[in-house]
Amino acid sequence: SDCGLCCVREARAAMTSPGNIHVRHLLGVNDKRERVVKASRDVTMNSKKVIFQVHRANKDNKEEVLSKAEKDLAATTEQHMSRLVKELQGTDFWKLRRAYSFGVQEYVEAATFCRFCRKGSLLGLNEINSTLAPLSDQNDEPLQINALDYLLGLADLTGELMRLAIGRISDGEVDYAQKIRRFVQDIYRELTLLAPLMDDNAEMKKKMETMLQSVMKIENVLLTFTAMNDHGGSTGDGNHGRRLRRT
C-alpha cells in the first residue's frame, strides 16, 4: 500500500500549492477550465451582439449606432473579458487555450469590425491587448491575446465585411464598398502568406476558403454595380444615373 499512497499523497500535497493547477484539475477539485469556458461563452454572445448592432448602421444613424456598439464592446470587455483575465495567467494561456479561443476570436472580430467602421483601418493586436492590460490589477502577467486567435478572428471579420459591403451597395455607398473590397483583398493576401505558418493550421485553412468566398462575393457584387453602370443602352449616352450617386 506504500505505492498507492505515495502517488496520491503527492497529488494531495500538490493540491495545497495553488499554482499547480494541473494536479488540482486532475483531482476534480479545480474547475478553472469550466469557469473559463463559461466566461468565453459570454464573451462570444456579447461580441455577436456588438457585431449585429454595427450592421444596423447606415448613413443617417451611423454615429449613434457605432457609439452604442462601441459602448457595448467596452461593457463586454469590462464584464466578461475581465473574467478571462482574472482566471488566466502565465502557462494557462496555452494550456487552456481551447477553452477560451472561440470567445477571444469572436471578440477580436467585434473589436476590429467596430474599428473598421469607425476609421476604415485595421485594429492591431497590440491595441487590443493594451485595452486588456488595465483589467488585471493583481497579475504580473496579464492576459495577452495571442497572434493565432487574433488572426483567426480577423479571418471571420471578412465575413462581416462582406455583409457590410453588400448592404452599403444597396444603400448606394458604392465607394465605401470599393474601400471594403480593397481592405478585404489586402487581408486575404496577407493571410495567404501567414496561414500556412500558423500552429495547427487546419482551422485557418478552412477559414481561408470561406474568406475567398467572401472576397469574391464582394467582387462580384461590385462588378455589376460599378463597372456595369449602365449607360442607357447601346447608345451609351449616360453620364447620369447611379454614377452621380458616387462621390
Binding site: 483583398q185 495567404t192 502568406l193 467582387e219
Partner: peptide, 12 residues
C-alpha cells in the same frame, strides 16, 4: 506562396 501573394495583386 510568396509568388502567389504577389500575383494576387493582379486583382487590384
Amino acid at each position: 506562396r510568396v509568388m502567389h501573394a504577389g500575383l494576387l495583386l493582379a486583382h487590384q
